[in-house]
């Protein structure tokens, strides 16, 4: 730990989540994941669809129960909380959803949506709804008049600001952004990211930033975890950039597949040829073995563990030293 690294605010330890599927088979969505998030910083989690990142955060948020493992927050394993204690804990960990069209009850007005969390915990009275709604809307740079509108009368970007306002209404310590910008136009994405960063600086919020866009993750995140088929295959932090220092073969593939602005003519875009195998039949060795161009025998037989290859940089690959 470097001298000015902030304290760990959330520690995920050996988290495994399995689902039983028809026919007695088991789907392993998260396989023994361990990660740390630091106060006031952004932990990015990147991977393709089906890699388990959404399941991971939903388990942390106690929407699904975990199969095994712990999540340490404020000195206790929050996965062991039940009932009212679990509900109270939610004040501190909130979420912004991907699809602004689906994230809100179509029958509720904006001011009701944004103050609902506060009312749930009895933090404000019904009579204070209008005033607080105005504050929250201002915080995310939405016009105060929107208070009486319905979400479907707003643009995608405006709705996402609303989602952020709702998530922040309780002043939580951690906010999970589950693909929070993926459904937006690129220009709007930028603005939302700016907003998120500003709010983080003002309030010291920790973000868990789920994304599939490695370019965006590179810009936004202090630490990045790359997930593949339920496993963390690479973790980079401590000031290093994934775009320049990513080492895992999968990470490299992701990097190559991105359309870069400074595209050199002649450079080839190399999308991965094969398809992602099903997380139902996890192979014995490295999860990426079937698609890795450098795959060797040992890769197929033995699953690589995360090894520190540099300070704050871990990779799970037999071929990386």
């Amino acid at each position: 730990m470097t001298a000015n690294q902030p304290p760990v605010v959330l520690e995920i330890k050996n988290l495994t989540k399995k689902f039983a599927v028809d026919g007695g088979r088991v789907l392993t969505a998260c396989d023994n994941i361990s990660l740390k998030a630091y106060a006031g910083q952004t932990l990015g989690i990147i991977g393709e669809s089906g890699c388990g990142k959404s399941t991971l955060v939903r388990t942390v948020l106690q929407i699904h129960p975990a199969t095994s493992g712990e999540v340490i927050f404020e000195g206790q394993d929050i996965l062991k909380l039940r009932g009212e204690a679990a509900r109270q804990n939610r004040r501190k960990i909130q979420m912004v959803f991907q699809d602004p069209a689906a994230a809100f009850n179509p029958k509720m007005k904006v001011k009701e949506i944004v103050t609902e969390p506060l009312l749930n915990f009895g933090l404000i009275k019904k009579s204070e709804v209008d005033a607080r709604a105005a504050e929250l809307l201002q915080m995310v740079e939405l016009p105060v008049e929107f208070m009486d509108r319905y979400p479907h009368n707003m643009s995608g970007g405006q709705r996402q600001r609303l989602g952020i306002a709702r998530a922040l209404s309780l002043e939580p310590k951690i906010v999970v952004c589950d693909e929070a910008t993926s459904a937006l136009d690129v220009s709007v994405q930028e603005k939302i990211c700016e907003l998120l960063v500003r709010l983080q600086k003002e309030k010291g919020i920790t973000y868990l930033f789920i994304c599939h866009d490695i370019g965006l993750v590179d810009l936004m995140c202090h630490q990045v975890a790359v997930m593949y088929l339920g496993n963390v295959v690479e973790y980079i932090g401590g000031g290093r950039r994934i775009s320049t220092e990513g080492m895992h073969p999968y990470t490299k593939v992701l990097l190559k597949a991105v359309f870069k602005v400074d595209f050199k003519p002649g450079e080839r875009i190399e999308p991965l040829e094969s398809e992602v195998p099903s997380p139902l039949d996890l192979p014995q060795g490295c999860p990426f073995a079937s698609r890795c161009e450098f795959c060797t025998d040992i890769c197929r037989q033995q699953k690589p563990q995360l090894k520190e290859v540099a300070h704050g940089h871990l990779v799970a690959c037999h071929l990386v030293k």
Binding site: L61, R90, R91, Q94, M95, F97, N105, E116, R166
Partner: peptide, 17 residues
């Protein structure tokens, strides 16, 4: 299954609410 129900849970809503 819709997101806003998940959101309601995350927001600390009770079952009744």
């Amino acid at each position: 299954k819709r997101d806003f129900v998940e959101a309601a849970i995350v927001n600390g809503g009770t079952s009744t609410h």
